[in-house]
Design a protein around this nucleic acid. Structure first.
Lengths: 185, 185, 185, 185
DNA sequence: GATGAATGAGTCTTCATTCAT
DNA sequence: GATGAATGAAGACTCATTCAT
């Protein structure tokens, strides 16, 4: 039941937004009552936090795996872009919720999520930095700002990219890797 | 008064979000009463629409000016990126509200705003297309997807870029133009 | 309207208790809606605080008047007992609410009310102390404890005394004055 | 277990009040679940009734013992005051709950408890009446009202008396017996 | 003896909106 | 132009209680 509530919530939060989705909305689609919701979650915010943690933890884990391989930084970057893009296909709604609704976390929780989010960015940054050191990427690029650019490109795709449309996630990932690698070559 | 209400609303919407800002909040900071609000705006949503239109219309207008010059597409692209980035410095809050709160527009208004927003994107796309035709940019790039990438890079900067920080808006615009032009060269 | 809400609330709080009286209950008997309640009071607790302050402030004011006269301490004590007893006849429900529901005030408000309540007790105590010094009352009595005894006698009457029953408030006040004065003579 | 639930409930009811204490609160402090509670008590109200009966039955029993001795009425009164005061030291929380939360009993149970409570008062009254008849106390006092005064003095001490403070329960009982006996001498 | 899942009615509170003045 | 009083619908959350296991 807990899992179902979470699943359903993600869909609704994505569709209507966190504030616009009432507990009533959530439980109604599951055919249970509000009491049931509060049996599993102590508050609406706690549910949101739960969703956030699942998402970012999963992403960090995948990132770590990529980081630990012996591949070149160029290859790692390709894989990371692919991870971010294909993630949409797999957990699309989760991602939208993640990027859009963090504001509704309480101070304490927001801090925790932000730390992890920045961890991800820092990891990406260090691939760029390493790549520059290894002369895989152009000298003089600014790793921090380029990292933001890459995240902008991939995260923005949550706003428009439809994985079941004409372009596949893999193809999009290729295009974006290409664009980025050219940009920093 | 109407202008003041709008100005104040933008700040509050940016800080707390549309749903989390009550009419009460808005009028309180201005020292007037709710009645005053409803004298100038017929609803909260209408106010949001007003904000959206000002923002996108202004952006489209600037874009048009750039488009009508005799510059190369390369140069136009540079100017467009600069427009998007420096806009943050000038109308930061407006932009955040624009990207975040569109969901709260009613169907009818949302359609109108979306049309204009897509207009902007299409214009950017045509610069790219023209540039390819003129052999200013690499053959084979996908204008539509690259346009999304550019918008991703610039729009995402709303999330992290602080115009009064170390990096100036102009510098950031340069870095990003550079990155993009290299990416599609 | 604000006054009416307060009046009605006192009656309901006395009859059913603070926690057992819902805002709904209050507004229903007045034929208005919950919104109206919150237009005048920011919370249920604030209403309770309002009631408490009216009660204790009124009592303190009367006490002060008695204290400032040139009467003997014996006479002042008689008047004070009369004040406490007749108060039931006039503001019976208020008093019950006052003694029973203070627990529902928030920390901050509770402190303020307690201070005033103790002020009243201290004033009573000083009449006793003065009376002992002036040899109006027996030497060796403990003013603090006797003060508590007097308040016990009078406050407890809120639990059983019916001013419109056989015994009048004046008569009861006489009996109690007599009892107390004999006790400390 | 049943005893533990009752014990814990008394403490919580005293601290937070009956309505403000949830079954959850009670079972949590005992490390059991709500099911357990309902295995031993059919309802929250039944638990409260249980607490009330234990308290008043115990008090009545003690009173009866005093009544059946051959002591003078004067002496009986002294012992009764001592019983009421020292009871605070021994069952303080129980007493507070008893005086404060009776309102939450259902009609039927309230009647039963009230009867016993009045029984106690009537017994006290008859000591006073007897004492007047035996010329131990002043002629003309009103036994019923004096009984209320005595109960007021002792019951009110629940509100302020701290048995582990400067004054011992025995000392307080002495002071109060003295006060009362003087008052009706 | 005891648990865990679920209920449903109720609570306080918020808020966009209306309208007579 | 602007106010103040009032509405009513909705929202998050609580809690005593039930019951199959």
């Amino acid at each position: 039941m807990k899992k179902e509530i979470k699943q359903q919530s993600i869909l609704l939060f994505e569709e209507k937004g966190f504030s616009e989705t009432s507990i009533q909305d959530i439980v109604e689609t599951l055919g249970v009552t509000k009491g049931t919701f509060y049996y599993y979650f102590s508050s609406k915010e706690q549910l949101l936090m739960d969703i956030h943690l699942s998402y970012i933890d999963d992403l960090l884990e995948h990132q770590e795996k990529i980081q630990q391989t012996q591949h070149s930084n160029r290859e790692k970057l390709i894989q990371l872009v692919a991870l971010l893009i294909t993630d949409i296909a797999n957990h699309g709604p989760s991602g939208k919720v993640f990027f859009r609704e963090m504001r509704h976390l309480c101070e304490e929780n927001a801090v925790e999520v932000k730390r992890k989010r920045e961890q991800f960015r820092k990891n990406l940054e260090s691939i760029l930095r390493e790549g520059v050191a290894q002369h895989e990427f152009r000298q003089g690029i600014e790793p921090e700002i380029v990292a933001f650019a890459i995240l902008g490109i991939t995260n923005w795709s949550y706003q428009w990219f439809n994985p079941s449309g004409e372009i596949s996630a893999e193809h999009l990932a290729d295009i974006y890797s290409d664009l980025v690698l050219n940009g920093i070559a």
